[in-house]
């Protein structure tokens, strides 16, 4: 009897949770017909925001990959004093309120910020530019990639690395031909999360980069500015972001599921894909 009650309680809780999480998503699509939403997607506000979002995300995520991969590798493979402090530092933006991130970026890179006068001397002014958007996105999104990357590199079997080295491959070659391919599913998962988080960035951007259509107004900022003017346009952009986020998650799940079957032919695959 008690067991049955517990089971019912669990199911009820799960049902409430699912309904709560699904309802807003459903509502975005139910509020207006797909045709009406689609017609909004061609309005200049939406297309401009799309361009800003895509461009800043592309640059920000390229930075995340280029700087985050070596960082994750070092943190995963080296043991040194203060390592956990470093890891915590890298993970901190993950739990930091975005408004605090924006405040920090302004205090660091704003005109009167820590590095403001040095940047000014170089003729650089970051706030209100697309660079500011890119930096805000990279700041809030990169921890997701680095965190996942550390785990991925830690999971690489050290004997594989040792084997590669004994067979005469240098450390660079070993990294690109053995370590990276083995860590790739984990890195891809981290990258997908970073991409999704970056596309949704709002708080740090509006504080550090402001909001100007066609320059710094990303999709989330455009949603906020259109919400009182043209609710349909805001909904259309919301629907677009839901679809993109769902696609990212789905790709992530598929890529992770797809990996185990590949394990048997790993070495061959790894060599062919990186040569």
């Amino acid at each position: 009897m008690r067991r049955a009650l517990t089971a019912v309680a669990f199911f009820a809780a799960a049902l409430v949770a699912l309904g709560f999480l699904a309802l807003p998503i459903v509502a975005i699509f139910a509020h207006a017909s797909p045709a009406r939403l689609a017609s909004q997607l061609s309005s200049p506000v939406v297309t401009d925001a799309l361009v800003v979002s895509v461009e800043t995300s592309a640059v920000a995520q390229a930075l995340v990959l280029a700087l985050g991969t070596p960082t994750a590798y070092l943190l995963a493979t080296r043991r040194f004093p203060g390592r956990s402090l470093f890891v915590t530092l890298v993970e901190l933006p993950l739990v930091l309120p975005p408004a605090v991130a924006g405040l920090g970026l302004l205090a660091a890179l704003g005109r009167n910020g820590l590095l403001g006068s040095s940047l000014d001397a170089l003729g650089l002014s970051i706030p209100f530019t697309r660079t500011a958007v890119t930096l805000a996105v990279a700041f809030v999104a990169s921890p997701l990639y680095v965190r996942q990357g550390i785990a991925a590199f830690e999971a690489v079997d050290p004997s594989m690395v040792a084997a590669s080295r004994t067979l005469g491959a240098g450390s660079t070659r070993t990294f690109f031909r053995v370590v990276l391919p083995l860590a790739r599913p984990g890195l891809a998962a981290g990258f997908a999360l970073s991409l999704a988080r970056g596309l949704g960035e709002f708080g740090a951007t509006i504080m550090f980069a402001g909001s100007l259509q066609g320059v710094t107004q990303t999709l989330p900022l455009a949603i906020y500015s259109e919400f009182d003017r043209n609710f349909d346009a805001a909904l259309a952009m919301g629907a677009l972001l839901v679809l993109v986020s769902a696609a990212v998650l789905l790709t992530l799940k598929l890529s992770v599921q797809w990996t185990p079957s590949r394990q048997s032919s790993r070495s061959r695959f790894a060599l062919s894909s990186w040569s």
Partner: peptide
């Protein structure tokens, strides 16, 4: 114009900070 803010106090803040 470098930014269109969502309310008047945001404009005030950006100027008071010296960013604008």
């Amino acid at each position: 114009v470098v930014s269109r803010e969502t309310d008047v106090r945001e404009v005030l803040a950006k100027v008071a900070l010296g960013e604008a």
